[in-house]
Amino acid sequence: MLDEKELVLNPIVGESVQHNARTVSNIRALTASLFGVAAGTLGLESYPGFLFYFIGTAVVSVLIFALKADSSPKAYFFRPVGDLWVGDLFGGLMSFVLTWTLFYGLCKA
């Protein structure tokens, strides 16, 4: 109920919310495959590789926060914690694993 009242008092623009979510998920998809390239080249295996991915996504979140969201995620994301920091944490995992295995095979085999 509190949320509904808040939305009536301070309405949000759905189009902008969609645009922001699309932009962030595009960035995440691109950088996830980049992290896969790096992890495969470095020859990471099992847990260190996944740890590398999660550290990388955290760095990308900080970059979006600092460079794109002007350090005020409240103005660009409806739920900053969900949409910016942990929202797409597993969205790029599959493309990460794809390029990770590919470059691991290229550089180690």
Partner: peptide, 11 residues
């Protein structure tokens, strides 16, 4: 990649 992506819009 972050810099070249389109600007976010205020919600």
């Amino acid at each position: 990649v972050v810099l070249s992506s389109p600007d976010l819009k205020p919600i």
